[in-house]
């Protein structure tokens, strides 16, 4: 019996050695460890053996069973590894093949830049308000110290809905500044607001001129707001949008609804201030107009200029986008050519 067991063990292990596939392994298991296998039969027949022999054969048979079982586990693990490796090899891809296209949508560059601008001011506590594109002469001009026949009307080539008659003529707003008055009519100081929107100009288009533009108007009114605060606010804006190193120029300029008036320019990106075609050889590129809200404008908003002061600014979004992306033709924005739009 022991000899038979020995033989059984040798035979089983040598067969296991030959097994190369998981399917074969299963039949090996059935054959050598299954209910009908010789080993199982021997183990079942143990009871019929005399005690002495039963002990010896039993120990031997159990030892063989354990050896075969552990051989099986090892072999199974081994074969599974091989199987996985072959199937991974088989399922390998040409990873250089292009992926499945997913339709791509992007935002127009102007709203992207507009949002950046608004974010900078929102972080400084400014709130966003919007107003109508079609305005009364009153809000666009008269209330901003530009009555009819005022020379400053030359600064705004206007598209009129009604003929230019009086303050009740309708027009397409030439700047976002009418929102200053509209806001003051509704809000009391402290006011800190930005007012983005479309503005329109009666202007033939070329590389630097468009008939429709986006502007962001700003207004801050409270006690003790100074020109120095305006300077600080706009310098901070420029720092956030154009970077620490970019030089900023803060000079006197004229807009009828502010006094003192300000123009802010940044150092030309193309020539770094030495002067080139882009900046008209001045080294500077104007980015916005600003100033301290004119006392008459405050009065029209029913705010006492002796108690309160404030500043206002207005900037063109296209100009800033052009500087940001190096765009040299403003008409590209509203031509909506996908070859242009897909770059942003």
């Amino acid at each position: 019996m022991l000899k038979q067991l020995k033989e059984l063990r040798r035979e089983a292990l040598s067969e296991l050695n030959q097994v190369n596939e998981l399917r074969e392994l299963n039949s090996w298991r059935v054959h050598h460890l299954g209910k009908k296998s010789k080993l199982t039969q021997i183990l079942r027949s143990l009871a019929t053996l005399p005690l002495e022999e039963r002990k010896k054969v039993g120990a031997q048979a159990n030892e063989i069973k354990r050896a075969l079982e552990s051989g099986l586990v090892e072999k199974k693990k081994f074969l599974e590894e091989i199987h996985l490796a072959t199937s991974l090899e088989r399922e390998g891809l040409d990873v250089t093949l292009p992926g499945r296209p997913v339709p791509i949508g992007r935002l127009h560059p102007i709203p992207q830049v507009l949002e950046e601008i608004c974010d900078v001011f929102k972080n400084m506590g400014f709130q966003v308000f919007e107003g109508p594109d079609v305005e009364w002469d009153y809000y666009n001009f008269e209330a901003l110290n530009i009555p009819q026949w005022h020379p400053a009307r030359d600064m705004f080539a206007t598209l009129w809905v009604d003929p230019e008659m009086d303050k009740e003529s309708r027009l397409l707003r030439t700047h976002t500044s009418p929102m200053q008055i509209r806001l003051m009519e509704k809000k009391r100081p402290p006011i800190r607001a930005i007012m983005p929107g479309r503005v329109y100009r009666y202007e033939a288009t070329d590389v630097t001129h468009e008939s429709m533009l986006y502007q962001v108007e700003g207004l801050a009114i409270d006690k003790d707001i100074t020109l120095a605060d305006l300077k600080g606010t706009l310098f901070e804006f420029s720092r956030c949008l154009f970077g620490e190193e970019r030089k900023v120029r803060f000079r006197c300029d004229y807009f009828p609804f502010v006094e003192p008036g300000v123009e802010v320019a940044i150092e030309c990106s193309a020539c770094h201030g030495t002067g080139c075609r882009l900046c008209g050889y001045s080294g500077w590129i104007e980015i916005l107009g600003a100033g301290m809200t004119h006392p008459d404008v405050l009065k029209r908003g029913d705010i006492d200029p002796e108690i309160y002061s404030g500043f206002a600014f207005g900037m063109g979004v296209e100009r800033i986008a052009m500087l940001r992306y190096g765009i040299d033709d403003i008409r590209l924005f509203y031509r909506n050519d996908l070859r242009f739009l897909k770059q942003f």
């Binding site: 400084m124 506590g125 709130q127 809000k187 402290p190 006011i191 800190r192 607001a193 801050a220 409270d222 006690k223 003790d224 707001i225 100074t226 020109l227 120095a228 605060d229 300077k231 600080g232 606010t233 310098f235 901070e236 803060f250 000079r251 006197c252 300000v262």
Partner: peptide, 17 residues
């Protein structure tokens, strides 16, 4: 204008929306 100091708004913030 270059002699004007650079300060930041110090007035209270308006009520937020």
């Amino acid at each position: 204008y270059d002699k004007v100091p650079v300060t930041r708004l110090s007035s209270p913030l308006p009520k937020q929306e």
